[in-house]
Every structure is written in structure tokens, then in C-alpha cells.
Simulated assay, not measured.
Amino acid sequence: MAVSGMETLDIISRLQSSDVDNSTLEALRITTDRLCSEYPYLPSGQLVTEGRQWLKRVAGLQGQRLTLAQHKEVLTLSGWLALLVECVEYDMGDRPAAESTRRAALSLANESENGEIAGWAHEMRAWFCLTTGDYRGIIAASQAGTDVAPHHGVAIQLAAQEAKAWARLKDRRQTEVALDRGRKLLEGMPYPENLDNHFVVDPAKFDYYAMDCYRLLGEDRIAETLAQEVIRASTDFDGTERAPMRMAEARLTLGVVAARQGDVEQAVNYGELALTAERQSLPSLLMVSRELAAIVHRDYADEAAGREYLDHLNTLTRAT
């Protein structure tokens, strides 16, 4: 049956009408940004609960009458919240849940045609591969993410993840190539408005990734300098630690450098500080802690400080 002009106008009007006002969506944007900004320091249990609750609320809006633009916005907000929940699930050691949520985020990204969210979903895959020792998987995930989000900030972090993989494969040239690509991308991006948002890459975060690479390559002086800069940039004027997980890995880097230089007391000191941080990403923390533990076990297992650190790390690993 042919559609008359009046019927066509009615259809367009229905598509442009909505049960959700723009102020509601703006409030949800602000809430999503707030939750993503609380990732570095809010207790994992609290953040994952809030994230899931808000994800459920936002997803529930799809059952209401939305304009096409609002429908896309709801899918986008759901994608960001899914990415956040996935991060915290993995921090807590719940790998199956994190992978399921990652796949959901990627599906939402594809449905909303949002390359940036898709890029972060691939970046998460690279992170999972990093902590499980699948270094070729990191490279594949990084390249897949770069293909879908070449001009977004996530491309910087994807380059950094690829550099981490090459560093663990002991390929210095490819590590430097990936780091250089990430730096050039960073220099070409506008300075972020909200540095606290977990899905924003800033110079301090890139230093953190480079620190990891140079530690693996045995460049102790560069790694130490970068670790000190990460700690400085992550500490407020009053001593408050704004990025405790990042600082934990910086301290472990300083611990590795101290252990290589023969200072077991300082090495273990840094190692213990990292293990006792209130906000932890367990897979990443244990991965870097084992680097320090390998040196302590090899060179200082007979010393009391070395034994105590190894016992503490073993206890945490068993609990995880």
C-alpha cells in the first residue's frame, strides 16, 4: 500500500518524538563521566555495584519511546558503562565476567557505530592478553583496535599496549617503534578536559606505559626516572594519591631497579608498599610483582626481608 504524504509526516513526527527529555540524557552523561573518573580510587566493590546499577538504568531506557539520536546516545552511554564495569570486574580477578562484559561493550559499540568504544573494547582484550602472557594476542588486539579507532585517544593506549608486548618479547626496535607512534599520536591530540576519566590518555599515563617497557628492556635509569615522574604526577599537593594503581606499579618498578642494584631492603620496601595499596588491579599488580619476586627469589631468598616478601606475595596469589 502506498504511503500518503500525511502518513509520511506522521511517521517522521513519531521518530522525532520521545518520552525522554534531553536533561535526563545530560544527567546520564554527567553520571557516566563521574563514574569513569572515580575508577582510579573508588573501592572496586562499590564501583562495580554502582556501574552495574547505572548500566541497568540506562539500558532500561531502550524500552521507552526515543528519537533515533537518543537511541544512539543510550547505546553509547551503555557502551561506556559496560567498559567501566568490565575494567573493575577484571581488577577484582573475575575474568569470565570481564570478558562477557567486554563482548557486550563491543556489541554496543558496533550497534551505535562508535569506533572509540570499539577501540577500547579491543584495548581491554590487549590488557587481558598482557596479564595472561599472550603477547602475540596483545599485538593482534592492538592492531584491531587501531583499525577501528585510528584518530581517537585510545589509539595512543593501543600503541602503548603493543609496545609492552614487544618489550616482553625482547624486541627493542619494535618496542621503540610502537612507543614513538604513541608519542606522535599524543602530541597531535588536544589536551584532555578531564584527566581523571579512565578512558582518557594524557602524557602522565603514557609515561606510565613507557616505564613498563623500559623496565622490561633492562633500561634501569630510564625506567627509574619515569617511575618517579609517574608517582609525582599521581600525587596531589597534600599527598593524596590520585592514581594508586598506577603508583603501585611505579613503586614495583623502583623495587625492580633497587633489586638489580643489590639493595634488597629498598626493593622489598617498594614491593610491600605496592601490595598494600587499598585500590588494586590484581592481575596487573601480580604480574609486575612477580618480576620483582623472580629477582628476590634468585638473589635474596636466603635473606629475611626477601623471604617475607615472597611469603606475602604467595599469600595474595593464593587468595586471588
Rank of each mutant, 00 (worst) to 15 (best):
R29M: 07
V58S: 05
A104V: 14
F206W: 04
A319F: 11
W54S: 05
D238N: 04
Y41S: 14
G5M: 06
T49H: 08
H198G: 03
T49R: 08
Y191I: 11
T8K: 07
L216Y: 12
E123M: 09
M124N: 07
S107K: 06
V148A: 03
M1V: 09
E123C: 10
F128I: 07
L292T: 07
G60M: 11
G145K: 00
P96L: 13
T67E: 10
P283T: 09
A163N: 02
H151G: 03
M6F: 11
V74N: 02
A163G: 05
Y191T: 11
A105H: 01
T235P: 01
K56M: 10
D91C: 10
V20T: 05
R102M: 09
Q280T: 14
L83M: 08
S107R: 09
W80E: 05
W54K: 07
A304P: 05
V256I: 15
L81Q: 05
A227R: 06
D19Y: 07
A227V: 09
A104E: 10
E219P: 04
M247W: 04
A210V: 12
D196V: 06
R102Y: 02
S18N: 05
Q53W: 12
R232I: 04
T225D: 13
D220T: 13
A165Y: 00
Q261A: 15
W54F: 14
A105G: 03
F199P: 01
C129Y: 01
H71D: 10
L158N: 00
A140I: 12
Q46I: 13
S13G: 08
K72C: 12
G137R: 03
R242M: 15
A118L: 08
E272Q: 15
G153Q: 01
P43D: 14
I30F: 10
W54I: 08
A267T: 01
D147I: 13
A277S: 14
A277K: 09
V200C: 03
P203E: 06
H151R: 09
L217H: 02
T8F: 06
D311Y: 03
S289I: 15
A204V: 05
E162D: 03
Q62C: 06
L292A: 04
P244D: 03
H198W: 10
E193I: 11
P96I: 12
W127C: 00
H198V: 10
R14M: 12
V177P: 02
Y39R: 00
L108T: 01
P244F: 02
W120E: 08
I117V: 15
D263T: 15
Y135C: 01
H122K: 10
H152R: 06
T31S: 13
G93F: 08
E176Y: 10
Q53S: 14
Q143C: 11
A121I: 10
A163E: 03
C213D: 02
G60H: 11
E291C: 09
E162P: 00
F206M: 13
G79A: 13
A267K: 00
S78F: 09
L273P: 03
G137M: 03
S17D: 12
F128W: 13
L292R: 02
V296A: 06
M247V: 15
L195P: 03
Q157V: 01
T24G: 04
N194K: 08
A210S: 10
A163D: 01
L15V: 09
S289Q: 11
T225I: 08
G63R: 08
D238W: 03
G153Y: 02
A141S: 13
